[in-house]
Design a protein around this nucleic acid. Structure first.
Lengths: 191, 191
DNA sequence: CATCCCATGTAACCTGTTACATGATTAC
DNA sequence: GTAATCATGTAACAGGTTACATGGGATG
């Protein structure tokens, strides 16, 4: 019962279909919750069965119809309970960090390539988050929006995502530079 | 097959028992991989059965004996394969962020308390990581250690953890300040 | 005397991932 | 025509979590 609350929170500011929710979990929600589309479809079904969200058919032309979901009063109450509960420990799993941890004992050429790639993708995500922040606050300055604007929750979590990606990019760039300086050319010693 | 490589990487710089490994996964490895003690005991058994680590009984006085584990040549080869493979998408799950996402629609008093608590625990972890960095580099300056020191992998991942915790602390402090300014006193509107 | 730390697991359950399945429309 | 996007799932399997179990020694 954990994905459940992430989905409820994501549905607060918007109606979403499963497909749209999957997009939101790809960029935006991805800062703090990772989930696959299949999980989201399954979770939306369960949430609807439990009465925490309601679905509404949206007829579309030129593309398949879809069902969009909204949080119900019991759903909001469930979120309220979740918020009051002790948070679980934060959960990080990152392959690339495992590889850097092992950098002294394995070939670093691949690690360097992956660090470069990650730095580039972090830079892309930063740009995406900056766009999203602009969209969320509209005409307002950041200062004004943070004082009065709504919804502020998604804005604050997006800022977090931006800071995280900046940190990731900087760390990758720095780490790659350190490893390259230690082993000029990034070659793998053999034998 | 994912925890496996985190365990192998953690065992590279040291022999560890299951219990010690659990401690390492609590601070240090926690920056990039989350796992429970039960998982570690189970994984060590599997790794030993598969010949990727070897166990060695250490007789102790005044406390129970323990089995410490070392990575074998096949274990190192397995890590080498893992390093060459494409990394999986990074995995984050954070209850507190879900709660902030919902901040416009639920009571913020509890969220504020949890943000304060998280800021404090991030500050504690920063101190722990700073200590660990000092221990890892010994007498050397950071610059020298990054050029020649060993093992540099754990040092680099620890730096990442430090940066992450700093970012977490700053974001929590900032976010709490924003929410408090919007709703003076942090009270929950009812009705 | 109680509590914490060391030390290691098992068993039942829940959650998440991988692979597969379908089908229409739009953009190149 | 080929690929991408929209749209929604199922089924089998792998992985992770919760609860439980045990027992000695050190610390206050």
């Amino acid at each position: 019962m954990a994905l459940r609350h992430a989905v409820l929170a994501a549905l607060l500011d918007n109606e979403y279909s499963g497909y749209q929710l999957a997009k939101a979990f790809d960029i935006g929600v991805a800062n703090f919750w990772h989930a696959l589309p299949q999980q989201l479809y399954a979770e939306l079904s369960k949430l609807e069965k439990d009465g925490l969200v309601t679905g509404r058919e949206v007829v579309q032309t030129g593309r398949p119809n879809k069902r969009v979901f909204t949080v119900t009063a019991p759903g909001l109450a469930e979120l309220e309970r979740f918020v009051a509960a002790e948070p679980r420990p934060t959960f990080i799993r990152d392959d690339l960090l495992v590889k850097v941890q092992a950098a002294d004992r394995v070939g670093t050429a691949e690690v360097l390539r992956q660090l470069d790639a990650r730095a580039a993708s972090a830079a892309e995500k930063m740009a995406a988050y900056e766009d999203l922040l602009l969209t969320l606050r509209g005409e307002a300055t950041e200062e004004d929006f943070l004082r009065d604007g709504a919804p502020v929750g998604p804005y604050l979590t997006c800022r977090r995502g931006l800071a995280l990606e900046r940190e990731t990019r900087d760390w990758c760039v720095h780490t790659a530079a350190v490893l390259r300086a230690r082993r000029p050319g990034g070659e793998v010693p053999r034998g």
